[in-house]
């Protein structure tokens, strides 16, 4: 399973953690499409804590963390 952790406004109307089968998503862009999150709204995309592009591969056991822009002060 791929564990998808959503943060801040991405949680609104969705679960905060979503699990996907590897067949359902080969990259973060697939995950975003599955969750109906517009790609341009993603500010931080981490695979296992490392910065990733939306086209980078995700595999079984990976933890994907997605964040909107970092916010104000």
């Amino acid at each position: 399973m791929i564990e998808v952790r959503l943060f801040a406004t991405f949680r609104e109307g969705r679960d905060k953690i979503v699990y996907l089968e590897p067949e359902q998503a080969s990259c973060p862009a697939d995950v975003l499409d599955h969750l109906k999150i517009p790609h341009e709204e993603v500010a931080i995309c981490l695979i296992n804590g490392f910065h990733s592009k939306l086209s980078d591969p995700v595999k079984d056991q990976d933890v994907l963390a997605l964040f909107p822009p970092v916010g104000g002060g």
Binding site: E40, V42, A43, I44, L46, V70, G71
Partner: peptide, 8 residues
Amino acid sequence: VTAQEAEE
């Protein structure tokens, strides 16, 4: 960790 284009 932040995409260059990300902005509120």
